[in-house]
């Protein structure tokens, strides 16, 4: 399934709900553009809910790493929530699990901004 990105705001935090696959091509480009436009409009608190992500490849991971760096360079914070087991395994293989701030649920990720 191609990537669907739904966006909503909760207490000044932008939640991107991702559904589908994040792979080389349109999917990775769409995600890159969405994060870019959030940062351009001063949305500096972002949670990506990955619960609906069915597949990710190295291009998708690269997009996430680039988004993480862009956010940090602009003073924004990007957190991930709701990673499935397969996704976690891929992050482990690539040693990226410790790079991102990862939360079990979207609610926990949102709550972490209050601390």
């Amino acid at each position: 399934m191609p990537l669907k990105i739904a966006s909503r705001e909760i207490d000044g935090i932008t939640v991107l709900q991702l559904e589908g696959r994040i792979v080389l091509g349109e999917e990775s480009n769409a995600l890159r553009e969405r994060v870019k436009s959030l940062l351009a409009t001063q949305k500096f608190k972002i949670v990506m809910d990955m619960g609906g992500v069915t597949y990710i490849d190295s291009a998708g991971l690269g997009t996430l790493v680039a988004a993480f760096h862009s956010a940090r360079n602009q003073g924004a914070v990007l957190k991930l929530s709701n990673l499935g087991q397969k996704f976690q395994e891929v992050l482990q293989v690539t040693k990226l699990l410790t790079v991102f701030e990862v939360f079990d649920s979207e609610a926990a990720a949102i709550q972490s901004f209050a601390k």
Partner: peptide, 12 residues
């Protein structure tokens, strides 16, 4: 350890 986009595929 050098965290950056790209170059992950071959490792995988």
């Amino acid at each position: 350890e050098d965290v950056k986009p790209g170059g992950l595929g071959t490792h995988m």
